[in-house]
Simulated scan of single mutants.
Amino acid sequence: MKDTRRTRVVLAALLVVALAMITIDHRGGDDSPLRGLRGIGATVFGPVERASASVVRPVSETFDSITDAPGQRRRADRLERQNQKLREKLRASGLDRDRSAQLQRLLGTAGTGGYKILAAQVISAGQGFEDTVTIDVGSGDGIEPDMTVMSAAGLVGRVTRVGPATATVLLATDQTSSVGSRLEDSKEIGIVEGLGRRGFRGHGETPLRFQLLDAAAPIRVGQRIVTLGSQGQRPYVPGVPIGVVERIERSTGGLTRTAYVRPFVRFTSLDVVAVVVAPPRKNPRDAVLPPKPKPTPTATPSASPSASPSPGGDPDERPSGTRGLSTEPNPGD
């Protein structure tokens, strides 16, 4: 089309007519005199618009997705980082609650027994033939060999090797471990020995063996055992709970008896422990033992008795992050 004066006049006239029709149709609303024309236009041009949209829309959406891909990736990464931070906060809050509960138990046990302790965390387990763990305190924290190591539940073992910032603990379950012990409510003493890793497989939850020095002394299943204490309070201080008698075996000749003991400490999930850096002023004897469980009443005399709860109390919690917490018992304890 040539750009002449006539074409310009025609174009201007068409624009004026179009604007007039739009104004009249808009002001008339549903009663617009041009409603019929609007319907005809929709009928004629509607299929054309839908066909063109079906062709153009996928192309435009593909173009938009390509151009917006870096932004989408950045938003996904940002959301992932936010989710990770939220998960870490939830985990930390849970650890804080566990740490608080565990330390409260540890402080209660130390206060009851009159022990001065230094709390530590187990950071690794021994891979050799010995049952050992490594804790995150050492000579720089005042730790020395042959110090008693305990948890809130009872005896863990003794320190054998000390470095500047770490120490090795020989567990009471080790085959070379031998602990002077005493039965509760009795003056009868004996030796608790570890059965090693084989003890866990061969005896389940009873990886300790107890032998009385007096073969004729009374002993019964369910009786609990505490440390007797060593000369000079090294390597074991007195009164630390060890475990409960699970079963008793008599030798062939009947001269000796061996009791198998389930420890109060769960050695397979050690986390927070305490090194006793100073012994108690007096022997706590049975004071540190957990309360005895109450027997479950039976419904009828003919009913079989229910099993009593574990005498060991609740198992250890597994909080972390307690390096260097020291506690000293109240002089009045």
Rank of each mutant, 00 (worst) to 15 (best):
T4F: 13
R5T: 15
V17M: 07
L19V: 15
I24M: 09
I24C: 10
D30G: 14
D31F: 13
A42P: 03
V44I: 14
G46P: 07
E49G: 10
R50I: 14
S52V: 13
E61Y: 13
E61C: 12
F63R: 13
S65W: 06
D77L: 14
R78I: 10
L79T: 11
E80L: 13
K89P: 00
L90P: 01
G94E: 13
G94K: 10
L95M: 10
R97Y: 12
D98T: 15
S100I: 10
Q104G: 10
R105P: 03
G108K: 02
A110T: 03
K116W: 02
A119R: 00
A119G: 05
I123N: 11
G138A: 10
P145V: 05
V149R: 00
S151Y: 03
G154R: 01
L155C: 08
R158H: 04
R158Y: 02
R158V: 00
R158Q: 05
V159L: 02
G163H: 08
G163S: 09
A165L: 06
V169G: 07
A172S: 14
T176F: 03
S177E: 05
V179I: 13
G180C: 01
S181A: 15
D185P: 05
S186R: 04
G194C: 04
G196F: 04
G199V: 05
G199C: 08
H203Y: 09
F210M: 07
F210R: 07
Q211Y: 02
L212A: 09
L213D: 11
A216Q: 10
Q223S: 03
V226E: 01
V226S: 01
G232S: 00
P235R: 03
P235A: 01
V240H: 00
V240P: 00
V240F: 00
V244P: 01
R247S: 03
R247A: 01
R247F: 10
R247Q: 06
R247T: 03
R250K: 11
T256N: 14
R257Q: 15
T258C: 04
R266I: 10
D271G: 14
V273C: 06
V276M: 02
R285W: 08
P290F: 01
P297R: 11
A299Q: 07
P301S: 07
A303T: 12
D316S: 06
E317I: 10
E317F: 06
R318G: 13
G321D: 09
G321W: 04
G321Y: 04
T322W: 03
G324C: 08
E328N: 08
N330R: 04
D333M: 07
